[in-house]
């Protein structure tokens, strides 16, 4: 029981870094707000102060093509997750697991090849 607690306490360092990471930008921006002069004018609040007037929202409807890129990302992200435990336990697993992992990667490489052949990877 002691060992688990000691190990978990190491995460206090992580929590401290997390809090510092949140507090630093908050503190810096608050200090900036207090220190800077505040003289608002209508022109200052446009997106491009000396440029073209922006129109519409920036959140427009996207092409399906971008969704495929996101899906490719998810699939190869999952593949990466399976590589981690294999790499960590490689010494104990040996040759058979290497072959299994090769099958796994080749399987997904076929998918990538198919995507390539279908010109999904082409950026327009």
């Amino acid at each position: 029981m002691d060992l688990t607690n000691v190990y978990q306490n190491n995460y206090l360092v992580v929590v401290i870094f997390l809090l510092l990471g949140i507090l630093l930008p908050v503190g810096a921006l608050t200090a900036g707000r207090l220190l800077r002069p505040y003289k608002p004018r209508k022109e200052k609040y446009t997106t491009y102060e000396s440029g073209i007037e922006p129109f519409h929202q920036s959140w427009i409807q996207f092409n399906v093509r971008y969704y495929l890129f996101a899906l490719l990302f998810v699939i190869f992200d999952v593949e990466t997750v399976f590589l981690y435990p294999w790499a960590v336990a490689y010494d104990k697993l040996g040759m058979f697991a290497l072959i299994e992992m090769t099958v796994f990667i080749v399987m997904l490489a076929f998918g990538l090849l198919y995507a390539w052949r279908k010109k999904v990877l082409k950026w327009i």
């Binding site: 699939i75 399976f82 981690y84 435990p85 294999w86 790499a87 697991a97 399987m107 998918g111």
Partner: peptide, 28 residues
């Protein structure tokens, strides 16, 4: 992580290989 790896690539090999088929099916 090491223990997950040892179990995944010895006892649970077939689900692991099925995952690759599932991912391939989703992609295609």
């Amino acid at each position: 992580t090491k223990r997950i790896g040892e179990l995944l690539y010895t006892n649970y090999l077939i689900p692991f290989e099925l995952i690759s088929v599932l991912l391939l099916a989703a992609l295609i």
